[in-house]
């Protein structure tokens, strides 16, 4: 157990190697994520930031290291990862809505099957969330009928239907047309303002500056800098971060 009670996720010396250590996607990452924090992870492509995020709910199985979620080591094989994943929502770059289900069914499938919610309760909760993202009129639509921005907003509320303790975002705006990025970021900002704990991998520096409580800069599978957005963007310490910012800003 971690001494600090408001630590939600504690990552210790996380490593992910491919080809018996030839490729080191993650090479010893340690970080704590506290309740209510919005942690934004930035870095060049191939820096390991997505691998790190996907390790947090074990979509990627780390080679070594520990991940404590609410005090439990999720890398321990005796832990029921499915139970823990219910409390860790995830939003993907390519939305990954279920194309054979309507928007409403996409949202209520997991609550009904996993939380044993009855249909009426699950649907009223889903409708409430749809209203929040101004998509209540698309409840009966199928994913193929939605725009990219709409799909991603649905993907976010689908994750919220499980009432997770943390939301993981894996480049949520990278597959969107530029004019749709804003509507998704707005939803994420609202969530952050409501106190949702979020870990976000993104290339949207504006979002990082405005919303993040903390920014982590990764490169080559290691954490180079970790600080408030002001410090990261206005007073970068390492050369690598300076070079990176010069390219993206």
């Amino acid at each position: 157990m971690n001494g600090n009670s408001d630590v939600l996720i504690s990552v210790r010396n996380l490593k992910k190697y491919y080809n018996k250590g030839e490729i080191r996607a993650l090479d010893g990452i340690s970080a704590d994520i506290h309740k209510g924090e919005v942690v934004v992870i930035i870095g060049p492509s191939g820096s390991g930031k997505s691998t790190f995020l996907r390790s947090l709910n074990l979509l990627e199985r780390p080679t070594d290291g520990q991940i404590l979620f609410e005090g439990e080591d999720i890398t321990d094989s005796s832990v029921n990862i499915n139970k823990l994943r219910m409390k860790m929502g995830m939003v993907f770059q390519h939305f990954n809505l279920f194309p054979h289900l309507s928007v409403l069914d996409n949202m209520t499938l997991a609550p009904r099957k996993l939380l044993k919610m009855n249909k009426a309760d699950a649907e009223s909760k889903a409708m409430e969330l749809l209203r929040k993202v101004a998509l209540e009129d698309r409840a009966k639509a199928f994913p193929a009928q939605l725009s990219g921005g709409q799909k991603q907003r649905i993907a976010i509320v689908r994750a919220l239907c499980m009432s997770p303790d943390v939301l993981l975002f894996d480049e949520p705006t990278s597959a969107l047309d530029p004019e749709m990025v804003g509507e998704v970021l707005d939803v994420m900002k609202d969530l952050a303002n409501e106190g949702m704990t979020m870990v976000v991998v993104t290339h949207e520096m504006g979002f990082a500056k405005e919303v993040a409580t903390r920014v982590i800069f990764m490169d080559d599978g290691v954490m180079i800098e970790e600080a408030t957005p002001d410090q990261i963007f206005d007073n970068p310490q390492s050369d690598r971060l300076k070079t990176f910012l010069a390219k993206v800003l």
Binding site: N57, N82, R85, F92, N96, L114, M162
Partner: peptide, 9 residues
């Protein structure tokens, strides 16, 4: 991955 991330086995 979307299914697993929601908690389905």
């Amino acid at each position: 991955e979307a299914g697993r991330s929601l908690g389905f086995n």
